[in-house]
Design a protein around this nucleic acid. Sequence first.
DNA 1: TCATTCTTTCAAAAAGTTCTGAAAGTTGTA
DNA 2: TACAACTTTCAGAACTTTTTGAAAGAATGA
Lengths: 224, 224
Amino acid sequence: MEPGPDLRAAQDRFVATWGQMASAWGISRTMAEVHALLYITGADLCTDDIMERLQISRGNASMSIRNLLDWGIIERAHRRGDRKDYFRAEQDVWAMFRVIVRERLKREVDPLLASLHEIRDDLSPRDSRPGLRGGARVSPAEAKALGEHAARIDSLVDFFVTVEKLSRSFVSPAGKGLQAAAWLLRKALPDDPTPPPPTPPTPPTTPASATPNSGPRGRERRSA
Amino acid sequence: MEPGPDLRAAQDRFVATWGQMASAWGISRTMAEVHALLYITGADLCTDDIMERLQISRGNASMSIRNLLDWGIIERAHRRGDRKDYFRAEQDVWAMFRVIVRERLKREVDPLLASLHEIRDDLSPRDSRPGLRGGARVSPAEAKALGEHAARIDSLVDFFVTVEKLSRSFVSPAGKGLQAAAWLLRKALPDDPTPPPPTPPTPPTTPASATPNSGPRGRERRSA
DNA sequence: TCATTCTTTCAAAAAGTTCTGAAAGTTGTA
DNA sequence: TACAACTTTCAGAACTTTTTGAAAGAATGA
């Protein structure tokens, strides 16, 4: 079913907005646009639909779709008597973000924690006595530096373990309860002290790198 | 104070790990490495120290430092009788992430919400009666499509408003209470059902794009 | 089996990002 | 004012990521 011109324009604007967001979060723009298109139309689209609407090549479409399938936020949909593959986006926003959080935990936080543990234990195993390293004695200053280093890594590990546990409770089957809790908490929370700004003209620059670039040159002190 | 070779190696490994993480989260690698260096050494370093330790150019160091200052996760430190600028990283991990969350809300979520509101209200103002658009009548099918579109945007808005409110309560002065609550909750939570994997050999590829690439070719169905 | 339809892959090109190094700028001291 | 010490900027180089288009691979039905 063809949308009217107004609706189509609004869809395009949504696709562009979602695509812009993507780069700030380490996702390729096109992949986000494909997802946005599937989400906002709510329709089952085939590769050719997506190629045409987004003006991208077949290879690019195929690759983006595959990645979205791997993430698990879109799924295949079949049509009897049609050999084409159709795709549809998860329509429940909370379910969608549960999937995203689960994947990012698995792909990014878990490996990070593994690395941190390794760095931490490699240098000063928790069960070794201070002042000893591989049987050799180290100076008190060195021992202190070693201890502080370990403590810094431990802080980070503690933080990410907390993040991981909280996220898992959001993501788990029982996480729907947490979702409900979040919703209630939000209702209970005071209203925004700083409401969204009155929509600046939004130039096409990425917001993350928007630095006021018109100041004077040279040795500019930012804060006293 | 010069660290011993072991400590220095561990610091370098941490810097590399943190730098790898960065790209997955839309931050430039060098910027993350500069931050990692300042965090893990716990020392006040000047531009030349950073250039030398990280083997980067003056321009790059200057730019990374400036961005980190803009984010607010490092600060200038002065030394009497020395005209150089020194820099130091926030050492409290929770405070650091509070700052990061605050900035990302401001730079990414707020503009996103503004755009979403705009798209939503532009197409079907909340106070208009259904079936009417700018005085002209639309077909029932069109009106339905318009309504569903608006509902999809509303779901997203609701989600991000919730995220924003929860994040603000984490970020606010009273957020320390929330931090404590999170810590308690974490203690109360069951231990990881899926503990971090036994540290795969970590090839230099970015974990986010690590796709099993050795399967058969052609029309490969991923799931039945 | 073959022809058809559809999907995936991959090498090369394009686009985008980050880095460098020299030049321009600032500040403080004499 | 001139100078020394330091910082920032910016055009082009280097590098990385994304995109394309054509070729190869699969599934289906006759």
